[in-house]
């Protein structure tokens, strides 16, 4: 009968593990559709050869504009280029009525975090890919999943529910910032990155 107790306990453990590793992540995140598809590779590929900063610009005072506004898209896409479905959506739903595309941002941080792109990209010369991964050469957008509790993108924690990154660029939590700053022997204070 000892054995039965052990079996029961182990089954409890296994049930928890199954729920925790498989059911929990599925329940924790809600998948949301992006307003349209976007192909980074077409822009950055050989044919067009654009660099990240051609669309993801800095303003005069050094702040980072993030995802470009529809005005930027319109510079080239005032009329449809090609005949893909997303091109049609872009022109008809956003460019022509001059409406901003309500993108869901994978790297959106909470309001109390302050991340100056200028200091990282311009002064420390960190490549975009070091944090954002090979996003610029992707041909489709990753699935956007939102955490039901915190309301932030799954990509902040990292795709892997364990929090252990499968790729070096995965995850945008504070420990990631702290690790990198520690490696560079930065003399930090909380308010350097919090507002």
């Amino acid at each position: 009968m000892r054995c039965k107790g052990l079996i029961l306990m182990l089954s409890g453990v296994l049930a928890s593990l199954a729920i925790g590793w498989f059911a929990f992540p599925a329940a924790l995140y809600r998948t949301e559709a992006q307003p349209m598809q976007f192909n980074h590779a077409v822009h950055t590929g050989e044919q067009n050869g654009m660099t990240c900063d051609m669309c993801h610009e800095f303003t005069e005072n050094g702040s980072f504009k993030g995802i470009p506004t529809i005005a930027k898209c319109t510079e080239c896409h005032s009329a449809a280029i090609g005949s893909t479905e997303s091109e049609k959506v872009l022109v008809e739903q956003f460019v022509t009525p001059h409406k901003e595309i309500p993108w869901k941002v994978y790297s959106r941080q909470p309001d109390n975090a302050y991340f100056p792109h200028a200091a990282h990209v311009k002064r420390a010369e960190i490549k975009c890919e070091e944090c954002h991964g090979p996003h610029g050469s992707s041909s489709t957008l990753p699935v956007y999943q939102v955490n039901r509790i915190s309301g932030y993108s799954r990509d902040i924690w990292g795709r892997n529910i364990s929090g252990l990154p499968s790729h070096p660029w995965e995850g945008m939590k504070m420990d990631r910032c702290v690790r990198c700053h520690a490696e560079r022997h930065r003399d930090d204070s909380c308010l350097d990155c919090h507002k």
Binding site: N61, G62, P116, A119, K122
Partner: peptide, 19 residues
């Protein structure tokens, strides 16, 4: 009060952008 730390951020960003 934190001496308008947001403004220090902005000044640092501006400096960083100008190298």
């Amino acid at each position: 009060c934190n001496f308008c730390h947001g403004r220090l951020h902005a000044a640092r960003t501006k400096a960083a952008a100008a190298g």
